[in-house]
Nucleic acid binder design. Sequence first.
DNA 1: ATTTTCTGTGAAAGCGCTTACAAAAACATT
DNA 2: AATGTTTTTGTAAGCGCTTTCACAGAAAAT
Lengths: 348, 348
Amino acid sequence: MKTLTNTSVPNHKVTIVDVANEAGVSFATVSRVLNNSAHVKPETRARVLSAMERLGFVANRQARSLAGGKTNCIGLLVPDLGTGYIGEIIRGIDAELTLRGIDLILYTTHRTASKEANYVANLATGMVDGLLLVLPRNPTDYIGTLTRRNFPFVLIDHQGTGQDCPAVGATNWQGAYEATEYLIKLGHRRIGFITGSMDLGCAQDRLAGYRAALRTYHIPEDPNLVYEGTFFQPDGYAGASAFLDLPDPPTAIFASNDVMAMGAMDAIRNRGLRIPDDISVLGFDDIPQASLIRPALTTVQQPLEKMGRLAAQMLLDLLENPAQKVERIELPTKLIIRESCQPPRQAD
Amino acid sequence: MKTLTNTSVPNHKVTIVDVANEAGVSFATVSRVLNNSAHVKPETRARVLSAMERLGFVANRQARSLAGGKTNCIGLLVPDLGTGYIGEIIRGIDAELTLRGIDLILYTTHRTASKEANYVANLATGMVDGLLLVLPRNPTDYIGTLTRRNFPFVLIDHQGTGQDCPAVGATNWQGAYEATEYLIKLGHRRIGFITGSMDLGCAQDRLAGYRAALRTYHIPEDPNLVYEGTFFQPDGYAGASAFLDLPDPPTAIFASNDVMAMGAMDAIRNRGLRIPDDISVLGFDDIPQASLIRPALTTVQQPLEKMGRLAAQMLLDLLENPAQKVERIELPTKLIIRESCQPPRQAD
DNA sequence: ATTTTCTGTGAAAGCGCTTACAAAAACATT
DNA sequence: AATGTTTTTGTAAGCGCTTTCACAGAAAAT
């Protein structure tokens, strides 16, 4: 009675027992086929496979995870999805995961730190096998927990302050340095800088890169020319407005991300000034719309898609071999010169 | 031996058995507390709760789903994440789901129809309790299966061709009609239209709305003024280029989405023409960057975030009460007038 | 031909939880 | 006080699968 075939009942879920009966083997063998385990005669395997086909069998994930101890899901924690920045990263992650048949559970924290820690705590308890954390807000809160529990995770776009954990990021310092240098070589001496959220490592690095370039070219740093933003568009607007209110406004503005650069452009135009004729604007990220706007935005490209892909690979490797040594990868950024920068109006 | 407490072993997962021992009740009672079932003495409940707290117990989702028959996850199938269009929808979905403690499993099909059908088949087998399908490509492939299996799902932004299934969309026809009417009232007589993927209901509706408006105002339709695109930026570029090559080019271009409108803008500017002075451009969607570009894009706003929220609500209702009657909701669109349109240069 | 080594398969014990069903305890009713 | 109800709690049977162990049978070695 227990191992009754249910092929006749249309709405019944097909289980390995059904398949086993259909194929005339024990359900253990079916499980072996399912797991590509060795020690199954090719002939038997074929028989089981065909039975599965005939019955339309699909393995139950919940049961597999429960029994097997892993979920084949990995969790992805992102701040939001608005800007395309994250979209690019996800595209990379997704490509890698799809390849290996692993599912993605998405969590958006909407930049709420408390939510972030909460999610992490929950996820690390059986929901997923590993965690990908994009632009983590204050990861110190839970990285300890994660490490202690030996829970695999990879940070994306977070050059932590000394924490020794797997991460992939971009050369933020370098990128900002080169971009600033480009502006300087164009002839700019007064370059306004709009920072990102300074609690994020990447924002700090970009600011540091900007400062370093200034120093290299012996340009004194004017505190009025650094505006602290939070990576959102309005910050760009506000920052640029503040700069333009200065008695001696900058001839170029370098925003720590593209979205803020766009905000800055807005502010500039609202004053009746033209880009790049009156003032140059430079961004960071190279999100898809950077090339879509006019003037097309000169910006520092981060290999977002690649970062996602790499992070996924690292995590998957970590899952397979937890003893793996910790890696921190920095992908190179690249200055993409488009139309939003030119030499200052009246060179000094 | 079997019911040995494991509090001493640090790395052991805490199960309901552990909690039961700690609280001095049977594990069934713990389960009841977990499920907020009635018939648990408040005092006992408190004791169990405190034991959970003490032990740091977190229920295992896999086990709960396996035993309980539901996953508390819903699946979201989207074509991609690049444009912000989807991002807005997800924001709405996410808001609703977070509220009810349900998780989101994300699948991006990257506009591959085969992948879509594949995912749907897989997901509908225990992975998730319900499915949210954004902008489904050719849903006829699997809507039948889904319906037959009684698997709950809601379509987003797909006004199917007669299929009777739950869906939330926007008034695409109406939106396109009003936008075209606006252009006509501005004085335009030759209005180029760039369609979306014509296998999508929304694209068809928008085209129909455009045509209807033309008819209303007795403007003969010129086949040269309709360019078939696929909702991607390059289509906008190509479409606008084709229009501008015409001996008698249009004075306004209406693209079926914002991204294509941006492509069109690009093409127009590459010809040395100015927007809106030489030619007006109008989009559809009102994605976040529509207001960020210059000139700011006049477009038809879809309540994307709200659509997501509503779809999630519908699905959740459906889960609770499968007998629910099928609803198809159309949210109103709204013309957002910004800077990209003005009366044609020389009125006829 | 006999023993040894594999290989292929089956039986059975869980994975951590839900949920009838049953038993016990508490309360109300005559 | 005895009985009937209603709560509250415990017992046990799965949910569908993985995996260890054991045991056949076949191949290899003696």
